[in-house]
Write a protein that binds this DNA or RNA. Structure first.
Lengths: 179, 179
DNA sequence: AACAATGGTTTCATCATGAAACTAATTTCC
DNA sequence: GGAAATTAGTTTCATGATGAAACCATTGTT
């Protein structure tokens, strides 16, 4: 059967994943943030098949995440560059990288360190913050219906509004389970 | 050919995606943060095929993102719950949701609003911040080799250390391109 | 004109996905 | 105690996505 689309779901995460959630796409975004612009370089740096890279780039351009422009220089050179929409994706990638650093690679084994260009100091952990800037844990927030919520989502959110993601202590050992 | 694995890549984003980057997995995480714990509820809320859900949950448990425990109640009830590692994924999902709200759903069409439980005020934008708490744009940071960088990554980062993600003005129209 | 570099598209074998059918463990109803 | 129901899967099978290699097209160089 055909792979299901997330586009119809009344959920911004699903709709975002429809654009960037396919296999390879987030790594293409990573490359773009690392400064890669040319088809050849994406292909070599990632080791992705060319037909797949072509399809992914095409979709990202069509969705306004990248632009495709002729580049100066010999041959048939093109450049793929991040748009404003693409650059706005930065926090997602940084959050994902930090999670990988801390929970997959292991502490102090990060392959890449992100530093503030001006000062050379490492950036802070990407975190969810309240209006006052305080860092919030999952249990400290609630999901409520937004202006774009359909009837189904509205019903779901109403029925569980009082049920945060509870934190239990007995799982600490299990959280270290194998890789 | 078999789908390539990202696990060997010297990149925390790739390694994170190896765990949560498969089709459906991030939406399963979203459901978990919304409070869903039972197989049946994941299946109904997402509309995912049961064999795929089974495979994804199994992998998330094996990787320490979820726990699987018997739950009180009739039948053969099980509960899947987020571990500390799973809860640490919160900023990634919130960043993704906000990006979807702003750039895919369109402004003021967000299906879900996330508010601080204590005050009821909406949370802030998830952003990359420096050590001093100031919000940083992609062009304001540099990627440098971390303790876990291999020779190849080290060489790449050294050669492009001086090349930030440049911001050009002429793309503003293109960024609005079709959906 | 021939050749090389870049950026693809096409073809084909293999793997992943989705739907439905089937299995298994536990509890409730009669 | 046995039948049915609930939950949580696994198996089977048709179809779609992926990866590798081959092929094509445009532009610039010799």
């Amino acid at each position: 059967m055909r792979r299901k689309t997330f586009a119809r779901m009344n959920c911004s995460i699903a709709r975002a994943l429809e654009l960037v959630g396919e296999w390879w796409t987030m790594l293409i975004m990573r490359e773009a943030f690392l400064g890669t612009r040319r088809f050849r370089d994406f292909q070599c740096n990632l080791g992705i098949a060319r037909n797949i890279l072509s399809a992914r780039l095409k979709k990202l351009v069509a969705r306004g995440v990248l632009t495709r422009e002729a580049a100066p220089g010999g041959g048939r050179r093109l450049e793929y560059r991040l748009t404003e929409k693409g650059r706005a994706f930065f926090p997602v990638l940084m959050a994902l990288m930090q999670w990988g650093d801390q929970w997959v690679a292991g502490p102090d084994r990060a392959p890449v360190k992100v530093v503030e260009r001006a000062s050379g100091r490492e950036i802070a952990q990407v975190a969810v913050r309240g209006a006052d800037g305080r860092v919030l844990q999952p249990a400290e927030v609630a999901m409520v219906a937004g202006p774009g919520a359909g009837p189904a989502m509205r019903a779901r959110l109403a029925s569980r509004a009082a049920r945060p993601v509870a934190v239990r202590s007995r799982e600490r050992d299990a959280a270290r389970a194998g890789g």
